[in-house]
């Protein structure tokens, strides 16, 4: 096409590697806080993945000569009541907490999208039925559901991920549905119908991209919420079973028991938890702003 060649631009804007690079550059330039959040999040992710290499001691390696020692050069974050190195355990805890947080939040988001988009867009009796089921599900207190299910299927990472994913996913579908019902009424949805687009096409190309800001925020807040829920479950002895070191378990188990003798036991996993949740949130906010073309400078 001469016109395209003459203008000298790629008629397929924003494709390939350069798009990713441009995106990262824009993230750092316009949203420094969000970029910092992303960096911190990635650091935690990597340290979780490479915990086996980075950890100076084994997670269950006890040293009764060094019990409840405060942080020192030998034990960077101190030791617990069995003489286990806290730094190693926190690193390994990053792995478990990140797995649980990431997977369960991802599952929750997918469940929310599927239920919320279908229910919100199709409307009618389908919406009515789905939403009453969601209502019924939400009337159960979370904790009661969790306790019942864990007592039946037993504790373990996969169970925790699935239960938390469903729990938050079904509740979150309300939020997605709300966003979809407002997008559905926009003229561009009718315009898409008027050019002959099918339902699936409209959902994928027109509805989903417009509810993405909500979905991104939903996901990032869920990462934090899920990690905290896992901590609550561990507190009740229903989380990932010990001696596996999850942050929640460390915080609510030994951390609480030895709060006076060794405050670092609670401090280290607590600070990690806070930092990860916060960095996920600021990164999510930045992502939402950057991905929305309306909020871009021209």
């Amino acid at each position: 096409m001469t016109t395209v060649a003459a203008a000298g631009t790629d008629p397929l804007p924003g494709r390939g590697e350069s798009r990713w690079r441009r995106f990262v550059v824009r993230l750092f330039r316009t949203k420094p806080l969000g970029a910092a959040g992303a960096v911190v999040f990635v650091i935690f992710l990597l340290s979780g993945i490479f915990a086996g290499v980075l950890a100076p001691y084994g997670i269950n390696e006890t040293d009764l000569a060094h019990r409840l020692e405060p942080p020192s050069t030998q034990f960077l974050l101190g030791t617990d009541h069995l003489g286990r190195d806290l730094f190693s355990r926190v690193l390994m805890g990053a792995r478990l907490s990140m797995i649980v947080g990431f997977c369960a939040a991802a599952l929750a988001t997918v469940v929310s999208i599927v239920i919320g988009v279908l229910s919100g867009y199709l409307g009618g009796w389908f919406d009515m039925l789905t939403q009453r089921l969601v209502d019924a599900w939400m009337t159960f207190p979370d904790l009661v559901l969790l306790i019942v299910v864990v007592s039946v299927v037993g504790p373990g990472i996969i169970q925790i991920v699935i239960i938390l994913g469903l729990l938050y996913g079904i509740a979150g579908s309300r939020i997605v549905r709300g966003a979809v019902t407002s997008v559905r009424e926009h003229v561009y949805t009718h315009a898409a119908q008027s050019i002959g687009a099918g339902t699936f096409h409209i959902l994928r190309r027109h509805i989903l991209p417009n509810v993405m800001p909500v979905v991104i925020v939903l996901f990032t807040t869920r990462v934090g919420a899920v990690i905290l829920s896992e901590a609550a479950l561990s507190f009740l002895g229903l989380g990932v079973p010990p001696p596996a070191p999850t942050w929640g378990g460390m915080l609510s188990g030994d951390g609480r028991t030895y709060l006076y003798l060794g405050p670092w036991l609670a401090l280290a996993p607590g600070v990690c938890l806070t930092v990860v949740v916060y960095s996920a949130n600021v990164f999510g906010d930045a992502l939402r702003d950057l991905l929305d073309p309306r909020m871009r400078g021209t």
Partner: peptide
């Protein structure tokens, strides 16, 4: 084909 009343909202804001 059809053209709608409000040009401000009949195009999808997040697609080029």
């Amino acid at each position: 084909a059809m053209i709608f009343q409000e040009p401000m909202s009949s195009l999808n804001p997040v697609l080029t």
